[in-house]
């Protein structure tokens, strides 16, 4: 089985796991549509959002999360956040380390000033 096939299947599974987060019962309109009511494309946005959610969940998976964890984490994000993450997970800030670099930076600054 090719990796791309496995990727496809896992993405489909993610879509199933994510479901429609705002889904109330048939007939009711979700809060997200009230949020986007000003735009004439609420329904299209909903479809796009599902695609980018699956996309982001796939990327999270490739960065070391299990399919279930990736789906749970994407489900807690808003459409706007998902849209921002989509395709940018590698480049957006990921807060991590602290102290050591701070000290190095101050050292470098002082060195630079003294040298200048």
């Amino acid at each position: 089985m090719s990796t791309s096939f496995i990727r496809l299947v896992s993405r489909l599974l993610i879509v199933c796991l994510i479901g429609l987060p705002f889904q109330v019962s048939a007939g009711m309109i979700g809060t997200d549509q009230a949020v986007t009511a000003a735009q004439a494309q609420a329904a299209r946005n909903a479809v796009l959002s599902q695609i980018s959610r699956a996309d982001v969940a796939g990327q999270l998976q490739s960065l070391g999360l299990t399919p279930q964890a990736a789906a749970d984490r994407v489900a807690a994000l808003t459409d706007a956040e998902v849209a921002k993450l989509s395709g940018q997970i590698q480049s957006l800030p990921a807060g991590a380390d602290g102290e050591l670099l701070l000290l190095i930076l101050v050292g470098v600054l002082i060195w630079w000033i003294v040298k200048k």
């Binding site: 999270l60 490739s62 960065l63 070391g64 999360l65 964890a69 749970d72 984490r73 807690a76 994000l77 956040e81 998902v82 921002k84 993450l85 997970i89 590698q90 957006l92 800030p93 990921a94 807060g95 991590a96 380390d97």
Partner: peptide
């Protein structure tokens, strides 16, 4: 950690900081 830390980035994304807060 399991709600927000991303091993492949060795860090945590801003959006997920908010997501974990909601969770």
């Amino acid at each position: 950690t399991p709600m927000v830390y991303l091993p492949g980035r060795q860090g945590s994304l801003q959006a997920e900081m908010l997501g974990a807060t909601r969770r």
